[in-house]
């Protein structure tokens, strides 16, 4: 039972790492970035090509991933989302365009990655970091598993603190609540948006590198598979809340782990999505969702 719990928390941390950046951007500046999965994968891929020539340690790979993710995300914001918003200042009306713009961006990144990797899985076996396994009582735990757990919870804590206390975080939350009033109060929305997307991109890049270490390898299409789980985790927890995305990821992971170990892996996604369905029926705004002020 303990082992199941640890495994569930590990899977939850994978989801959390992936979903965190997406959740921050969505919950504050209202951008649901469908290219998040591709940014994640692309950062890991660039890190892979670099590590093939220089054997880097893990921390350097993580930094590299974060840098690539930041650049991609800032470019996406500047070249796609910002241009959409400029033509369509009403965020609600622009929502669909942003989703579709993200879909387009994602297919560009995916196509480039498929071209260079031929969709053959890639991993960081050339890195200086080596996986080691420890036995704690009945439980096997690996060093990379520990890194994942610490990174996921640490970054989530950092994001929560930043949104709550830092000045920029406050301004961001203000945008999330009411963009117009916030801009009247002197919040520079487009600069804030660029900064947020940069942070979200960095998170995507970090997640890409760490998950590749943990899973051993990913393929060009892996980002897509995580995207829908992340979307589910964020909705389950409630948009705009870090506690929400943590809870959502963990519940989703626990449900999947229980189904895989007790029933059959075939049903895992059905049960996980069935669960989301049920939760939403009783809590139409997710578990931690605030009362929506933007939309009826």
């Amino acid at each position: 039972m303990l082992e199941i719990l640890i495994n569930a928390v590990t899977l939850g941390s994978l989801y959390l790492l992936f979903a965190l950046g997406m959740s921050v951007a969505w919950g504050t500046i209202g951008i649901l970035n469908f290219a998040h999965g591709s940014t994640f994968m692309f950062s890991a891929m660039v890190a892979y090509f670099v590590v093939q020539t220089v054997a880097l340690p893990m921390w350097a790979m993580v930094l590299l991933g974060a840098a690539v993710g930041t650049v991609l995300s800032v470019l996406t914001q500047a070249l796609v989302f910002n241009l959409i918003l400029r033509r369509n200042p009403d965020l609600l009306k622009a929502e669909m365009q942003i989703v579709v713009g993200g879909i387009g961006t994602a297919s560009v990144l995916l196509a480039i990655a498929q071209h260079y990797t031929k969709s053959v899985p890639f991993g960081f076996s050339a890195s200086t970091f080596k996986v080691a396994t420890y036995q704690l009582g009945p439980v096997h735990i690996s060093n990379v598993q520990l890194v994942i757990l610490v990174a996921a919870l640490g970054l989530a804590g950092l994001a929560a603190w930043w949104l709550k206390s830092a000045r920029a975080g406050l301004a961001l939350r203000a945008i999330g609540v009411n963009p117009e009033v916030a801009s009247l109060m002197g919040v520079d929305r487009s600069r804030m948006a660029l900064g947020t997307m940069a942070a979200a991109g960095a998170l995507a890049g970090i997640a890409g590198v760490l998950l590749t270490y943990y899973l051993g390898s990913i393929a060009a299409e892996t980002g897509d598979s995580f995207l829908i789980s992340a979307f589910a985790a964020i909705i389950l927890g409630g948009i705009g809340s870090v506690a929400g995305v943590v809870t959502g990821s963990m519940i989703l992971a626990l449900a999947e782990t229980l189904v895989v170990t007790q029933l059959s892996g075939t049903w895992a996604s059905a049960v996980a999505f069935g669960l989301i369905f049920v939760v939403l029926l009783f809590l139409p705004r997710g578990i931690f969702g605030r009362k929506e002020v933007r939309r009826t």
């Binding site: 096997h140 598979s225 170990t261 892996g265």
Partner: peptide, 20 residues
């Protein structure tokens, strides 16, 4: 005998059951 889905990425849970 265990199954996973087409889009399963992480095998932590199922492999620990098998190892057990």
């Amino acid at each position: 005998s265990d199954t996973v889905a087409n889009d399963t990425q992480d095998f932590t849970a199922v492999t620990s059951e098998i190892v057990k």
